[in-house]
Amino acid sequence: MKVAVQSEDFDLNLELSRMRAARNDIGAIVSFIGLVRDLNDGAAVTQLTLEHYPGMTEKALLAIVKEASSRWDVLDATLIHRVGTLQAAEQIVLVAVCSAHREHAFLACEFMMDYLKTQAPFWKKELTENGEHWLDDKASDHDALGRWKTNDL
């Protein structure tokens, strides 16, 4: 299992190769990558700055991986979240889950993203043509978490 909070970009193929190395029991890998979109609420986004809570963030990410592993048969998982200033089209987050069967990999991957959206201490500040502003949390993200019957603080 790997979690990382970093300013550098990540390489999906590198992470998948690492997880697959020296094992033959993986039957399915599901991965998700979140990107910086160039448009949000109708305004052109030039850059995004991600702030986080050092110390708590790593623990929250580990808790997410642990919780997913307790619910599904997860053989290995990687969760990488970038921080700092990112430009449109850049990669923000990677979730990759290895399992014996696809169902567990799909569900665990989706769960980890839903959980991360509302429970991990990251905050986005957007720079658009209209200036700079902090993003608000979305009701749809809290609804998504509700599907998994998890406490949402």
Partner: peptide
């Protein structure tokens, strides 16, 4: 958050605790 755990308004803070206040999170 108290000692890196998200908590609600009624959670108790004691000596030596690390407390944090922040807006709802918006990562991912």
């Amino acid at each position: 958050a108290i000692n890196h755990e998200l908590v609600d308004d009624h959670a108790l803070i004691v000596d030596g605790d690390e407390v944090a206040f922040f807006p709802p999170v918006t990562g991912g």
